[in-house]
C-alpha cells in the first residue's frame, strides 16, 4: 500500500471541486470495502482519497412519489432491511441480503457496491499475471487460465472478467436510473449504461468521468417488482459471490405473462438483461416448461471458456427456478 493524501469534503459541491482539481490519481471512497482491499493488494494506488461520507446529499431512502430513491451512501444493510424494498421489490432486498457478510453490508454503500471491481484473481493479485484491466496492453491471463468464474457474455479478446456484484443485477431488471453529478453538472443514465463491456479498453469499468459522483439510484414504481426474487447459487451457503444468479420478476394477467424481467449475474462482464428470454414468455402461461425454455433461451449465444461451460445448464436451471419462485409471489 502506498501513502496517500486524504480529504473529507462537507458537501457535494466541494467534493466535485476537489475531484475536478485533483486529476488522475484520485479516488473517492465510501465504505472502502472494495477500494481499501485493492489498495492493500497494490492494484489501486491512488495518491489522494476523497472521502464522501460527509455528504448529506447522498444519504437517505425516499419511498414517496412514483419512484423509489436510494442515496448512494445508504449502507447495504439498511437498504436490505427497508420495508418498502422488501414489500415492493423483494429482488432488491434479497440481492443485498445475499451479498457479502453482515459486517461488510454494514460498511458498504450502494454507490460503491455498483462500482465494485471484478474478482478475477489475475486482476487482484498483481505481478506476474498478465491483465489488461490492471495493466493495459499486458494481455489477459484468464482467457486460457483459471476461468471458472469468468464471463461468457459480453467479453472480448482483451478481457472476460465477470461483473461480480449482485445488487446491479436486480437493478437492471427494474430499469433503475442512476443520477450522477460532476463538474459539468448533473445527468441521469440508465443502469444498463453505467457499466462498460471491456472491448479494447478493459481498464475502464464504468461510463463515468473522474469528477463524477453517483448521487442516487432511482427505481421507477412498477407493478412487476412485487412478484420477484434474486436467486443466487454460490460455492458455499453464504458469504460468496455468485456462481450464477438470476433476478426475476413477473406480472401475470389473465393467466398469462404480461411483464417479465430476467437478469443474470456471475456470467457476464456487465449486469446482463436476458431480453430474448423475456420476450419468449410474454403472452404465455408461466409453468415449469415455459420457465425452462426461457432459461435455455437466456443462455443462447454464450461463448463459454475452458472452465465455465457448466454454467449454461446450471444457469438455465437457475433462471427456471427463479421464475417459479417469483411467480409464486404473485
Amino acid at each position: 500500500m502506498k501513502r496517500f493524501d486524504y480529504a473529507r469534503p462537507a458537501d457535494l459541491g466541494s467534493a466535485i471541486a476537489t475531484l475536478a482539481a485533483a486529476g488522475d490519481g484520485t479516488r473517492l471512497v465510501a465504505g472502502g470495502t472494495t477500494l481499501f482491499d485493492l489498495m492493500k493488494l497494490d492494484v489501486e494506488t491512488p495518491g489522494r482519497l476523497v472521502d464522501i461520507n460527509g455528504l448529506a446529499e447522498l444519504r437517505g431512502i425516499d419511498t414517496g412519489g412514483d419512484e423509489l430513491r436510494l442515496g448512494a451512501l445508504v449502507r447495504m444493510a439498511d437498504a436490505a432491511e427497508d420495508t418498502r424494498l422488501k414489500a415492493d421489490f423483494p429482488l432488491l432486498s434479497e440481492a443485498l441480503w445475499k451479498a457479502a457478510s453482515q459486517q461488510l453490508r454494514n460498511m458498504a454503500s450502494l454507490g460503491g457496491n455498483l462500482l465494485q471491481r471484478t474478482r478475477c484473481a489475475y486482476f487482484r493479485h498483481g505481478e506476474p499475471f498478465a491483465c489488461n484491466k490492471r495493466n493495459p496492453g499486458s494481455g489477459c491471463a484468464a482467457i486460457d487460465g483459471a476461468n471458472r468464474s469468468h464471463a461468457f457474455f459480453g467479453g472480448s479478446d482483451a478481457c472476460v472478467a465477470a461483473y461480480p456484484g449482485d445488487f446491479a443485477i436486480a437493478l437492471i431488471a427494474m430499469d433503475a436510473v442512476i443520477d450522477v453529478e460532476g463538474a459539468k453538472g448533473r445527468r441521469s443514465l440508465a443502469i444498463a449504461d453505467l457499466h462498460r463491456q471491456p472491448g479494447a479498453r478493459p481498464h475502464q469499468d464504468a461510463n463515468l468521468s473522474p469528477d463524477e459522483i453517483i448521487v442516487q439510484i432511482r427505481i421507477p414504481a412498477n407493478s412487476v417488482g412485487r412478484a420477484s426474487t434474486y436467486h443466487k447459487v454460490r460455492d458455499r451457503e453464504s458469504y460468496a459471490f455468485a456462481v450464477v444468479s438470476t433476478a426475476a420478476a413477473v406480472r401475470i394477467e389473465d393467466g398469462v405473462v404480461a411483464d417479465v424481467r430476467i437478469a443474470l449475474g456471475g456470467v457476464a462482464t456487465v449486469p446482463w438483461r436476458a431480453r430474448s428470454a423475456e420476450q419468449a414468455l410474454i403472452g404465455r402461461r408461466l409453468d415449469a416448461e415455459t420457465a425452462a425454455e426461457a432459461g435455455r433461451i437466456a443462455f443462447e449465444g454464450a461463448a463459454p471458456l475452458n472452465h465455465n461451460s457448466f454454467k449454461i445448464e446450471l444457469g438455465a436451471n437457475v433462471v427456471r427456478d427463479a421464475l417459479i419462485i417469483a411467480a409464486g409471489r404473485a
Binding site: 474478482r119 484473481a121 460455492d235 458455499r236 451457503e237 453464504s238 458469504y239 460468496a240
Partner: peptide, 9 residues
C-alpha cells in the same frame, strides 16, 4: 477465495 465453511454451511 479459498473457501472455508461459514455458519450457514
Amino acid at each position: 477465495e479459498y473457501l472455508i465453511p461459514v455458519n450457514a454451511d
